[in-house]
Simulated assay, not measured.
Amino acid sequence: MLDRTIPHNLARKAVLYRMVMPGHTCPYGLKTKDLLQRSGYEVDDHHLTTREETDAFKAQHGVPTTPQVFIDGQRVGGYDDLRRFLGKPVADPKATTYRPVIVLFTLTALTAMAASHAVNGTPFTLRAAEWFIAFSMVVLAMMKLQNVESFATMFLNYDLLAMRWIPYSYIYPYAEGLAGVLMVAGALNWLSVPVAMFIGTVGAVSVFKAVYIDKRELKCACVGGSSNVPLGFISLTENLMMIAMAVWMAAGSIGLIATHAM
């Protein structure tokens, strides 16, 4: 088997300056050192141990931040600059992405299946499907409530009811979370069903109008006010899931009442 390691005497070398202070170690400095080492570089690691030393270094090299990497006597720059230098992708913090909702729905689906397996001995049950929607509602509410002000501001861009009654933009995530928790428990259907039906219907109509009628390009507040998820199919799906769950649970409750009446 061929040895693919770089011989020590042929190892590429990089000089790294990063903050390592008694009360703070720069996380980007750690990431930069790790990236250099994983890319086959021998790192000459210089620690900037005081604020004065850090400020003097930045002034000397005319740079606003640390860490800073030098290769072959030339300054490469910070962590993102190093990624570009190595031909690796650099995430754009403003780019739209579906990743947050994909991760969220994947984990809630797996959690629902795990709960079903623990209770019923199999992950593939009707209850798992119900839990998936209910867990998703709870987690989506939690994401919104991380910063309810930011969520409310983004929500006001497209929700028809919130634009007419501002308090609804603050009530919505609490209502979604409450309905989700009750649906997980299968309790108080008389409360969870109308709440989910109401907010789901208003949300679906609002998203459909904004995206498919008005053709507006907006960001969705579904996973919080700081997300870059585009308003569209995913947002509509969230609301349709709530409506479907409400209809399903209402039908189940009616069926149960009918059974007891016989």
Score class of each variant (00 low, 15 high):
T54Y: 02
V101Y: 13
G203M: 09
M137Q: 09
L48E: 03
F151D: 01
F151P: 02
P194K: 05
L107T: 07
P7K: 08
N9I: 06
K219I: 15
D81L: 06
T201F: 03
A179C: 12
W165E: 00
R216W: 04
A251T: 11
W165Q: 01
Q146H: 14
M154I: 08
L35A: 00
M249Q: 15
A109P: 00
A251W: 08
I257L: 12
A244Y: 01
L218K: 01
I257S: 14
K219R: 15
E53R: 12
A129Q: 09
S235Y: 01
C26I: 05
S150P: 06
G121P: 04
F124N: 04
P123G: 04
F135S: 13
V184W: 08
M154P: 01
T237M: 06
M197A: 14
L240R: 00
P22S: 08
A179Q: 12
Y28H: 11
S150Y: 07
D34M: 03
A221L: 02
D159N: 14
A128L: 09
R216M: 13
V247S: 10
S192W: 07
I133G: 00
A14T: 02
V184Y: 10
Y79I: 07
Y41N: 04
T5Q: 10
A210S: 11
I133A: 11
F208W: 09
E53D: 12
M143C: 09
A114S: 07
R12I: 02
S253F: 04
Y212S: 10
L48P: 12
Y158G: 02
A196L: 13
W248N: 11
Y170V: 08
L82V: 03
L36T: 00
H117G: 15
V15R: 14
N189G: 15
N147D: 15
E42G: 06
L2K: 11
Q74G: 07
